[in-house]
Design a protein around this nucleic acid. Structure first.
Lengths: 290, 290
DNA sequence: GTTCCGCATGAATCGATAG
DNA sequence: ACTATCGATTCATGCGGAA
């Protein structure tokens, strides 16, 4: 077990000068997780090796053994996660024998037996999905982003991920505020004023549970599993600066880079020496860009 | 059990003049299904009442009893479906106690035990989803469109649902065809011409398993649960003209109208007298518009 | 005819209140 | 404690009347 730590000063902190730290750990995630204290992590975002995918790198867990393989890990993840923390699991079942395999559903059921709450299922709509054509199937353009929690009272900072409103608002909000201004003038002190203030000048709306993002263009010689924007989105949504983000299957370091840039501490675990090295390099490159 | 039948001449048929028929049946779908012969239906598209929803119009089956309620129906559906036919089920689990309920997953598992193949899960991305704001959850903007089959060799007519390419393709295609034209001129008769003909003038691409559609806005006095384009899309994808389409929960008739317009025969079953009447009216209105 | 604007209307979900 | 009902929140869409 090797730990590489990359540090930077948190320039944006309003408090006294603080450091932001990215730990990149080489080792089997089950072993490493056992060294972490209880309730110590604020967010877990990860994209584990899919069943039978990335055979060369992760030994290729078969679909039928996937749940059995993953459950001991989710048990440890539950232990290290803070009661108000969140676990985001990016996963998609593969096709086996002409059918979608059921291991993801089984995993959800078993994790609920472990005590996890299956709070929500976000959809990642991949606009530029893998090309191809089959006689009985279209291209797969979406993946699951399963949200699990330990309790119903978890931290969620919705304002951090608001998005521009649709065209509807751009053309109409002006007029709406005109109407409201009139109403405001005619009914001063009636309580309408407060309602108006919520609408005037508002150009942002809360997003939905469908996340539309393109996959990372693969100019880099390794397969970037998800685009940096994806962990970034969840990090902003579920953590504050200086919180701790964990990715037990770090790969090339995407999650740690996203956390680092957003002034969150991170712990990334990677079993493959080659990926571990790459992740350290990639995060180091980020420090130079600041 | 009352059967209303609406007929029209199939003007577009290349064969001898044929009729297209829409049967709208008032009755409990389990009873009605038992009167239909084996292997007689080419496509089933339906959107059953969701657990605890539409209580006023349907019984309002509780989430915990949903699977138990639905399984006898899927068993009959399997019997009446043609071996090469497809069953598309539009459904979404509701939130219960802060968690997504698991009855949809359980339903899939149980249907597989009945012998159904869970071929694919399409996502319906609803752009205009229900508004609202909660401290721990975003708006729900997607529903499942589960595809089940009896065998791996089902009919699928992918060319019928090709869509215009995105801007990406439009700009790229121009250059491509320019290049190809030059090549074509310089190598007449060399065999390149055929390759070119596959590309030049092509502005259609195959879709993915994510369907983006807005819900039908409702000036009609009854809520159309899904937009007509949704059944239309699957009818074009999985049936030929004069095939038979079944919807055991017809509601206001959306599926039958879509089938009727596309020269497919249809059987729609509806338990509520009011909806049955409305469906007949709506389909009749279609005949007049032709 | 067009374009523009006001309006109603949802397969929702949470929290509070009531039996 | 557990269920039933109600109010508050919020935004994309198409219709219909107006400019």
């Amino acid at each position: 077990m090797t730990i590489n730590t990359i540090e930077k000063n948190n320039l944006f902190s309003t408090k006294a000068k603080t450091k932001v730290k990215a730990d990149v750990i080489l080792g089997d995630c089950l072993d490493v997780l056992k060294t972490l204290p209880d309730n110590s992590v604020d967010l877990i975002v990860t994209s584990p090796p899919y069943a039978d995918q990335r055979k060369s790198t992760y030994g290729g867990i078969g679909p039928d053994k996937y749940v059995e393989w993953f459950l001991p890990i989710t048990k440890e993840l539950k232990r290290v996660l803070h009661p108000k923390g969140t676990f985001i699991l990016n996963i998609k079942e593969k096709v086996a024998n002409g059918e979608r395999h059921t291991y993801v559903m089984e995993l959800i059921m078993e994790m609920r037996k472990q005590g996890w709450l299956w709070t929500e299922e976000f959809i990642w709509h991949k606009k530029n999905c893998f090309p191809g054509k089959w006689p009985n199937r279209f291209r797969d353009a979406w993946e699951r982003l399963l949200q699990f929690n330990k309790t119903k009272e978890f931290n969620m900072y919705q304002d951090e991920v608001r998005v521009p409103m649709g065209d509807w608002a751009k053309t109409r909000l002006k007029n709406l505020s005109e109407t409201d201004k009139r109403r405001d003038n005619s009914k001063v002190g009636s309580g309408f004023g407060k309602n108006v203030s919520k609408w005037v000048g508002r150009e942002l709306a809360y997003p939905t549970n469908v996340v539309v993002m393109a996959t990372e263009s693969s100019n880099k010689n390794h397969s970037a599993v998800f685009p940096k924007e994806l962990p970034s989105w969840f990090i902003k949504l579920f953590t504050k600066p200086n919180d701790i983000v964990l990715d037990p299957f770090l790969g090339s370091g995407t999650t740690s880079i996203a956390a680092f840039q957003l002034d969150r501490n991170s712990i990334g675990i990677e079993i493959q020496e080659e990926y571990h090295k790459l992740a350290v390099e990639n995060i180091n490159q980020q420090t130079k860009m600041i």
